[in-house]
Design a protein around this nucleic acid. Structure first.
Lengths: 191, 191
DNA sequence: ACAAAAGTAGACAAGTCGGTCTACCTCTTT
DNA sequence: AAAGAGGTAGACCGACTTGTCTACTTTTGT
């Protein structure tokens, strides 16, 4: 991967994440990154392809961070605690790789591309599926029954998305810990 | 309220909801509604004020619909079922007043205005608080203890936001019924 | 060493953005 | 009858939009 290409992606991500995709022009990305316009159009066919590359970049960064946050936990309840503690770190800007928190980039971007079959919306969908898969694999690695792991993953995804929205739209910086409490009560009966 | 003003608001809402605020220009709203530009700037000081008016309009419509969906239920479990059945109707375009479903308008818009103190972001925050208040009042009207009602409301809001995101970003049209199942398991221990 | 690839600055095109303004028309109220 | 509010159409403004292009320089691999 070319250094210029990566620089364009990281600069574009920061601007898109803060202001939204449609509110950021190509020229702003160019002047902010110090890259020439010709170089951008050498690497990307157009703005949409840059957006797609930015989504892929963020997906990898996010999943890598989340996996690292969960790997150490060795029991189901520890995994659940680790998940919401990680979210709490994210919401409160204690994660360098994700800072500053402006909600979920993929939720924000899909709000600007509502057509479900649009490539950009599809990329957002894929990210959410990736995160769910990552969680399911964590429970499978613990030897959890497949049906139980699937339901637990569904429940946790529901609470995770809810916590993100509460934290971002309502500015509730304790949303992750509240969701952790809810998750704990939810699994108390099963486990 | 002037008929022209209302017409501008409803037209702007449909376009904003489908394409996002920044992707829709004043001229598009004008040509779609058939209203003159001078008339728009007679009623609104600028685009931001129109956006604010649209948010207020949608908040009232949404809360009115939700309240109507919950009023008939006479027990806590019935209220919970009614909430997620209502969401299921919304997600699957069975509610004329809200159709077509493109996620939560307030989540989408706040994704375009990340600054927490921006008037538009604040209006989105206010909507989420309004919905939470509406839920809490439903349980209070049933004579539920205040602390219990508060925690139940928090849990349900978490699941509701999660279901909206799953339904919109992942295109999971069964998200509301899944969340209903999760909510049922969650309260089974308490009630 | 040399050719190809990747980079630079920035002019330019064609169109859209939010917003202002003139000139005129049509209601409603006193 | 008169007057003011609310409406129409659309020209116009300066700034910005994505994207193309020329002419030139730097970096990289063989």
């Amino acid at each position: 991967m070319s250094a210029k290409r990566l620089h364009l992606i990281t600069t574009a991500f920061e601007l898109f994440y803060q202001k939204g995709v449609h509110a950021v022009g190509i020229n702003e990305i160019l002047s902010e990154s110090g890259v020439a316009k010709k170089t951008l159009y050498h690497h990307f066919a157009g703005k949409d392809e840059l957006v797609l590359a930015v989504l892929e970049y963020r997906d990898q960064r996010f999943c890598h961070w989340l996996q690292g946050s969960l790997d150490a936990a060795t029991s189901v309840t520890d995994k659940i605690d680790a998940l919401f503690d990680a979210l709490d770190d994210w919401f409160n800007d204690r994660v360098d790789a994700l800072r500053p928190f402006h909600g979920c980039f993929f939720i924000n971007v899909s709000g600007e591309y509502s057509a479900p079959d649009h490539p950009i919306h599809l990329q957002c969908t894929r990210h959410k599926i990736n995160v769910a898969m990552l969680l399911r694999e964590q429970f499978e690695a613990l030897g959890m029954a497949s049906s139980l792991g699937s339901r637990l993953t569904d429940d946790l995804c529901l609470l995770k998305e809810g916590a993100i929205t509460l934290a971002y739209v309502q500015g509730d910086c304790n949303a992750a810990l509240k969701a952790k409490d809810t998750a704990t009560r939810l699994v108390a009966a099963v486990l």
